[in-house]
Design a protein around this nucleic acid. Structure first.
Length: 481
RNA sequence: CGGGACGUGGCGCAGCUUGGUAGCGCACCCGCUUUGGGAGCGGGGGGUCGCAGGUUCAAAUCCUGUCGUCCCGACCA
């Protein structure tokens, strides 16, 4: 029966935990972060506190990304948080690009410092200094480094996970002997590390491409990026990979002796992804009931929940927990007897656990458990003996379902535009595709006035261009975070 | 940094117009009954009303400044 009358309306209001996405998306975003206890603002402007539920998501991202980064032969290291101001001045574009975002330490031990120290907004400069020391011979190359750390950028407008003054990230820095090697490595990171992780683990299809000059990293030759589409139709830059040419090699004197017996400048790259991806995960998959975390990423893949506490039920639940855990799944057992069923169910949905297994006296009597799937919202009863298999099947299917849903959304909001005006119009609610020749930097500047940016340029066949000099490129325009 | 809005227990808000010393819902604590979709009843704790000045016998309320948050723009992972 359709809900009607005052009682039903009141019920709906009470049942509503979050502001619906359709009503106010930014508010919804805030609500989920609060209700799922992911993060909150810190005392200093733009600072953020990441709570355990939010940090667990980041930790899983780190695990998956770190494995892929190491797969490329890159090693982790750690460089200082404080960077002498003079380092920034060595690369003209770089200092110009980052100057407005720098936090500067001017005092130490109660005394003014002789030279101010910048808190790293990114580490090209200080790592460049050491690359210079460590790169003596072509035998030292390629030098492949990465660090997981925090960085700080002064921000005027901040938003939890998406843009904060301090954030956590991974920054890779490499030196290669030739342009080709550096170029190839930049793209390898884009495809094999970033896009692979985002699509296969985060279940977010990403547009890969080259950034326009306006969107390029300060000091880079070319910037490549991965863009995901959020459920409100706006784009989010999920990661970037830069080929720096010899700009930093020249500024920091990164030279090596080649097999030809001559000195050569190295070719460097840098690439990064940050806690912003947590924001992308939230906005890319979340719905009106909360987060929907793809099974591959989920810190808790299966939530085993005792419905009514009793010795038999608890024992059965523990058995299921042990079995799933034995299968290598990330499982959480919820035997809380002092929190009502509904609250625990809603909480699990807010946190986005992919599957929930409810076990109560009724299930137990039938030798079953109830399997609730977060993505589809379906409930089914499964014989206990077949539970492990059913869970595994559900996790696989729902990982794919999230990806498909996101891809479908992207396709449904992508429109071809014949003119800049058409593109700006289409980009208000989605993704506009236009020939770069029909847009150009003039069109890009005009679009920017309407809050629309060129997210990425691709070749006509959807592959990633090697440079902006290629002809026949296609531009994707949209509003973005 | 420009334009707009807002800061009142943890969260969401009322009170401000017409100054008189703070209230509601949720959350929290205790007790009992409960647990298959945010449980019920009873009892209880917690706020110098963002901060700083000013006006006044008296300020959450009026004035000024400042800090912070949110939305829109410029800048960015």
């Amino acid at each position: 029966m359709a809900p009607c009358g005052a009682e039903s309306v009141e019920f709906l209001d009470m049942a509503k935990v979050l502001t619906p996405q359709s009503e106010d998306f930014p508010r919804w975003y805030q609500d989920v972060i609060t209700k799922a206890q992911l993060a909150e603002n810190g005392p200093a402007k733009g600072s953020q506190v990441i709570r355990p539920s939010g940090y667990a998501l980041w930790e899983r991202m780190v695990e998956e990304m770190d494995a892929r980064i190491k797969e490329t032969g890159t090693e982790n290291a750690s460089f200082p948080l404080l960077i002498p101001e003079s380092y920034f001045k060595k690369e003209a574009d770089h200092v110009e690009g980052f100057a407005p975002e720098l936090w500067m330490v001017t005092h130490g031990g109660g005394k003014q410092l002789e030279e101010p120290l910048a808190i790293r907004p990114t580490s090209e400069t200080i790592i460049g200094e050491y690359m210079s020391k460590w790169t003596k011979s072509y035998r030292d190359l390629p030098l492949l480094l990465n660090q997981w750390c925090n960085v700080m950028r002064y921000e005027l407008r901040t938003r939890l996970f998406l843009r904060s003054s301090e954030f956590l990230w991974q920054e890779g820095h490499t030196v290669h002997a030739t342009y080709e090697e550096a170029h190839e490595f930049t793209l390898r990171i884009l495809h094999e590390v970033y896009a692979d992780f985002m699509e296969n683990v985060l279940a977010l299809p990403v547009l890969r491409g080259i950034k326009t000059e306006a969107e390029r990293f300060a000091g880079a030759l070319n910037t490549f990026g991965c863009e995901a589409i959020m459920r409100d139709g706006k784009a989010l830059q999920m990661g970037t990979s830069h080929e720096l040419g010899q700009n930093f090699a020249k500024a920091f004197d990164i030279q090596f002796l080649g097999s030809d017996g001559k000195q050569h400048h190295g070719w460097t790259t840098s690439w990064g992804t940050s806690t912003r991806m947590v924001g992308g995960l939230i906005m890319g998959h979340g719905d009106d009931d909360g987060l929907r975390v793809p099974p591959q990423l989920a810190p808790v893949q299966a939530h085993v929940m005792v419905v009514k506490d009793s010795d038999e039920v608890s024992a059965a639940a523990k058995k299921v927990y042990d079995e799933l855990k034995g299968d290598g799944l990330r499982v959480r057992l919820d035997t809380r007897g002092d929190v009502a069923f509904g609250r625990r169910a809603v909480d699990a949905e807010l946190k986005g656990y992919p599957v929930r297994i409810e076990i109560g006296p009724r299930d137990l009597k039938n030798g079953e458990a109830t399997l609730v799937r977060r993505v589809s919202g379906t409930k089914e009863t499964v014989p206990l003996g077949m539970l492990a298999e059913a869970v595994a099947t559900a996790l696989d299917a729902d990982q794919q379902a999230l990806f498909d849903e996101s891809l479908e959304l992207r396709e449904s909001i992508t429109a071809d535009a014949g003119s800049v005006d058409e593109a700006i119009e289409a980009a208000q609610t989605g993704l506009a595709r236009i020939a770069w020749d029909d847009c150009g930097v003039e069109g890009e500047a005009r679009a920017a006035e309407s809050g629309v940016t060129v997210r990425v340029l691709q070749r006509a066949d959807g592959t990633v261009p090697d440079s902006l000099d290629e002809s026949g490129l296609i531009a994707y325009l949209s509003r973005s975070y």
